[in-house]
Design a protein around this nucleic acid. Structure first.
Length: 517
RNA sequence: GGGGCAGUAGUUCAGCUGGUUAGAACACCGGACUCAUAAUCCGUAUGUCGUGGGUUCAAGCCCCACCUGCCCUACCA
């Protein structure tokens, strides 16, 4: 292809831990990342989009034991559910990576060896109160014995057991200065800005070396030369971003093209691992650092944290069934500023569906296209000279690409959509003010001009909204007579061509009606 | 314990370095129109800007204390 001429853009989500079913939080992250990937593709980049599952670790092993099945079968089964979710959400991924993939195991061992050669790995004793569920050690003061006689981690409330083992450590403490320099020289390395402050203040404090292997279980990547150890979660999991583009073959075409990654999209809970451990690992291994890590917020159910015990966990598959996929994608990206926590509710999504999609955009398309169908032989009309109102409207639409680029660059998806919808609302006002249905009798040429300008704004909006609602916008572009080669950002500067044959218009977005009781 | 963020119309939020009658969207109510998906357009209305002090000619914006929620971080014993 022409990929060599295009600027590469490598984007990832965090990989999911598949010891259960995916919930709306998984869907949220992958939808947002998909929108970003699609935006870049439409803007002419050569995109590589990676997502997948993190299948190792003691929790997977325990879940499998509890179900009485082999851990490999559990991983296989649940990874498939996550893959199914990608399809159900229309995710344009280029590779679904699993940490059990053969090439990933080689990659994890390769980065380990590089870190070891750099002198950053050493063996030491590790002892403490270990929580299997948190996969973390706690000091005695971080635990408490409860009434049942069992000791628990105070903070997380999970049971802990006294554990002693020899584990390998990574000299994280050696990287303090280099990490601080990284944050200072490159403030956009972590987004949003508030995370940047959190992370740098964490590093400014006392950075301790990191335990990176375990001997208490064996479901993981064996440490090279020491197979009684398996890698502890982060060296294994983070390395998936390298595996996804061909590491350890650093001379491979895909590695040379795509590494370092342009953007890691993650949840705010794992910001530290991506903004501190990961760059330190890469520095140690002598590999280039990703350009940006963006930590998004969490989604709450009507303001309440979702949890299995409360029983308010939202299943992404059923949301798609209830509201429609593009409606869900639009809602999540329009309603919630990506870096902040947000709230999901039935009323919220129905409000967006009806107000923004059915009424504003859908109805604008329908009212203009049906006039064109009835009065312009079903072709894009020939405009006359643009009046001031027409030119002003078209000029506003003309600024949208730059605005969207700026907003997507910093993952402000809701701002990009807000700007597009401001122009859509403006177009509805314009349409009502110009009254083309009156012009039909008094000044047909003027009517043609008004309809033309309206269709042109719709074309621009549809092209720009494609990353968020790919299927619906494909439909809209079809009823606007735009072929596949007229849908990228490269053609935004052109105008819709008069005389283009238009199919019979059909509504794009139905209103949501409450089901009858 | 330390640090940070947030608390503004029924709801979700804007309000830049303090400056005339505090804004938007949605919802609500009234009107117009009929091209359109009971849609669109126009208009009215709505607020002790968390609480209490203070600085200032002037504070939602600054200072102090407190309350509430959230986040990061550290713990004396």
């Amino acid at each position: 292809m022409q990929s060599s001429e295009q600027t590469p853009y490598y984007i990832t989500t965090a990989i999911s831990y598949p010891n259960g079913r995916p919930h709306i939080g998984h869907a949220y992250e992958v939808i947002a990342t998909d929108a970003m990937a699609r935006f870049k593709r439409l803007d002419g980049y050569d995109v590589w989009f990676l997502t997948g599952t993190d299948e190792h670790g003691q929790k997977m092993q325990q879940t499998a034991d509890k179900e009485g099945i082999d851990v490999r079968d559990l991983a296989e089964r649940n990874a498939q559910v996550f893959k199914d979710m990608q399809s159900a959400l229309n995710i344009s991924l280029d590779r679904f990576i699993r940490t059990t993939d053969e090439d990933h195991i080689r990659a994890a061992q390769a980065i380990w060896e590089r870190m070891e050669e750099a002198g950053d790995i050493y063996l030491d004793a590790y002892a403490g109160w270990y929580s299997v569920r948190d996969e973390a050690y706690y000091g005695a003061d971080e635990t408490e014995v409860r009434e049942d006689g069992q000791r628990y981690a105070t903070q997380s409330g999970t049971p802990v057991e006294w554990t002693e083992e020899q584990t390998y450590f990574f000299r994280l403490s050696e990287y303090r200065e280099r990490l601080l320099a990284l944050y200072e020289e490159n403030p956009s390395f972590i987004g949003p800005a508030q995370r940047h402050n959190e992370v740098s203040s964490f590093v400014r404090g006392d950075l301790r070396d990191l335990s990176i292997s375990r001997t208490t279980f064996d479901w993981g990547v064996p440490v090279p030369g020491h197979p009684e150890h398996v890698m502890y979660v982060w060296v294994d999991a983070l390395t998936n971003y390298l595996t996804g583009v061909g590491f350890p073959e650093t001379e491979s075409e895909s590695y040379k093209t795509y590494w370092p990654a342009d953007l890691h999209v993650i949840g705010k809970d794992i910001a530290r691992f991506h903004a501190v451990y990961w760059p330190a690992f890469l520095m140690s291994a002598g590999l280039p650092l990703p350009k940006r890590v963006y930590a998004h917020g969490f989604l709450f159910n009507k303001g309440e944290k979702m949890s299995k015990s409360v029983g308010n966990v939202v299943d992404p598959f059923s949301l798609v069934d209830t509201y429609g996929l593009d409606q869900l994608r639009y809602f999540l990206l329009r309603e919630v500023p990506f870096g902040q926590d947000g709230s999901y509710s039935h009323d919220g999504i129905v409000g967006r569906m009806n107000a923004d999609l059915a009424n504003d955009l859908g109805n604008l398309a329908q009212r203009s296209l049906s006039m064109v169908a009835k009065n312009c032989n079903g072709q894009v009309p020939e405009p006359g000279t643009f009046a001031e109102a027409d030119a002003a409207l078209l000029a506003k639409a003309g600024t949208l690409l730059e605005k969207c680029r700026a907003d997507f660059e910093v993952q402000d998806f809701h701002r990009a959509l807000e700007s597009i919808w401001t122009v859509i609302a403006e177009t509805n006002r314009y349409f009502s003010a110009q009254e083309p249905w009156v012009l039909r009798k008094t000044d047909p040429e003027r009517m043609n001009t008004v309809l033309y300008a309206t269709l042109e704004v719709l074309r621009v909006a549809a092209i720009l909204v494609q990353p968020v609602m790919p299927e619906s916008m494909a439909k809209l572009l079809t009823v606007l007579g735009q072929n596949d080669d007229a849908r990228t950002y490269a053609v935004l500067g052109a105008s819709i061509v008069p005389g283009t044959e238009l199919p019979k218009p059909t509504p794009i977005f139905p209103r949501y009606e409450e089901p009858a009781e």
